[in-house]
Design a binder for these strands. Sequence first.
DNA 1: GGGATATGTAACATATGAAGTTACATGAAA
DNA 2: TTTCATGTAACTTCATATGTTACATATCCC
Lengths: 147, 147
Amino acid sequence: MKRDSRLSSVLHALLHMAEHDGPMTSEALSKCLGTNPVVVRRTMGLLREAGLVASDRGHAGGWRIAVDLANVTLRQLHDALGEPAVFAIGNRHETPDCLVEQAVNAALDTAFAEAEALLLERFAEITLADLAADFARRHAARRAQRG
Amino acid sequence: MKRDSRLSSVLHALLHMAEHDGPMTSEALSKCLGTNPVVVRRTMGLLREAGLVASDRGHAGGWRIAVDLANVTLRQLHDALGEPAVFAIGNRHETPDCLVEQAVNAALDTAFAEAEALLLERFAEITLADLAADFARRHAARRAQRG
DNA sequence: GGGATATGTAACATATGAAGTTACATGAAA
DNA sequence: TTTCATGTAACTTCATATGTTACATATCCC
Ligand code: FES
Ligand code: FES
């Protein structure tokens, strides 16, 4: 299965935007992420629908963060992306007639639901500001190491 | 992403085998699972390597369970299948140079690791005997419902 | 106004990987 | 020695995340 890396991508993009003065174009972000401008627009468009970023066309246009970094959690970003499926493992059929399969599905579903709940809980605890701070810490550490 | 449904499949197969006297052929299991005999062999072969099932060729051959149902957990089955990736979501690059991406990855990896640990913990708590009992319960319930 | 620049979006192409399929070798039982 | 079953390689199919092309639309600057 090919993994959905959009959450990772938008986080990278958002932190980049946070460090940057003024709006950033899809072109600039795509170069940064090593992808394509249209992919950036497609993904960032979902964040715009959620009100997390804003975009402007034309000269001096591009993408800007529309909210306070401290008020945006990874959970909100996950939701903005359409709550994509978390697991690469799943049941063969969702609503089987076979009682054996029903018993199997029930057991697996419970375990998956608990794990997903924990994941989303952790996501809800992490804000963009936390990540920005972590980045600043790493940045300082690298500078110290070099000099 | 296409989900890996092998765990669900082998559970279905194993419970079926548990209810059945004597070995079951790949052909019979594949009809039950709605798949192909070769897929069954391929998947069950992994369980055989882990010592959970045994296979015999020729007349009256097929697959049999090689261990006590109460001693096999979902975790063991997951491991036998090669510990496939649990998540459909992941980082863009695993070991990026960019410090922003490193900060992002670190945060996501921690959350994913915790969720995976919980999932595997739950898997380790559930035995095939538990599932067989749950099946029996559902079976009785259906019979009661029917009169 | 008109050219330049940026997003918005549809349509199509590519890449990856799970699952399915075909073909044939190997081995065991009758 | 025929039949039935697994073992396995090679190939095909299918789903889908991502990448790409093309063009419409909106905005800014001159
Ligand atoms: S911050 Fe731009 S490449 Fe990572
Ligand atoms: S037990 Fe055989 S079809 Fe489910």
